[in-house]
């Protein structure tokens, strides 16, 4: 099934023609560009940029403020900030919100999935828990991933959904791919570095 021309047109108009849409889209692109401009400058090859201004006061477009705060917290438990940047520096929750908002009327099922996911976390008491309680709550919800014999709580689906999208948002961000993984590709090089390890020549 393909999306009709009309749907696409409606989507494009909705996304770019509303004042908020224009503002948001241009800021997002700007932020991405300013990050990429500094991506491989100088000798530093680690760390994330500080948050672009607009994200500091970013109003969630898809989630309620309460759900968004819970989502942010959840993503930061999944990918914490430690020696390397985490979901916080990568603004994973913001990206998820942006993506779902951008879907407009195209993917009601996906949007509903996310609403349900946040509802199941709410039902589990995640929203009202302390940071420490939240950590142990996520560990409990996630346990069947490591041991499929364990019983899955209603929030297990939410965990998988949020994890999948957080991982995507994180490792496609500069904080994730450069800051956490030190990816060296997509650069200008004089030569290609050959393997210099004698142990790799032997099986």
């Amino acid at each position: 099934m393909t999306v009709s021309r009309r749907t696409l047109l409606e989507w494009a108009i909705r996304a770019s023609a509303t004042p908020a849409g224009i503002h948001f889209f241009s800021r997002w692109t700007e932020a991405a560009q300013s990050q990429s401009a500094t991506a491989h400058s100088g000798t530093s090859h680690s760390g994330a940029q500080s948050a672009p201004d607009f994200l500091a006061t970013y109003p969630p477009q898809f989630f309620s403020a309460r759900d968004f705060a819970a989502l942010e917290s959840f993503t930061q438990i999944l990918i914490p900030t430690d020696e390397t940047p985490g979901a916080r520096e990568a603004h994973c929750a913001h990206f998820v919100d942006f993506l779902l908002h951008s879907m407009g009327t195209l993917s009601p099922d996906t949007q509903q999935q996310w609403r349900d996911a946040l509802s199941s976390l709410e039902a589990a008491g995640f929203h009202d828990s302390s940071p420490e309680q939240r950590k142990s709550m996520v560990a409990k919800i996630a346990a069947p991933e490591l041991d499929p014999a364990l019983e899955k709580s209603p929030a297990f689906a939410a965990y998988l959904l949020i994890k999948r999208e957080t991982v995507f948002a994180f490792y496609t961000s500069r904080a994730g791919i450069i800051g956490a993984l030190d990816y060296r590709g997509n650069t200008y090089n004089v030569s290609f570095p050959a393997c210099t390890h004698p142990e790799h020549h032997e099986i």
Binding site: A32, T172, R174, N186
Partner: peptide, 11 residues
């Protein structure tokens, strides 16, 4: 050259 984070929808 573009990184995925240069793209609005990350590819």
């Amino acid at each position: 050259h573009t990184f995925l984070y240069d793209l609005k929808f990350r590819g």
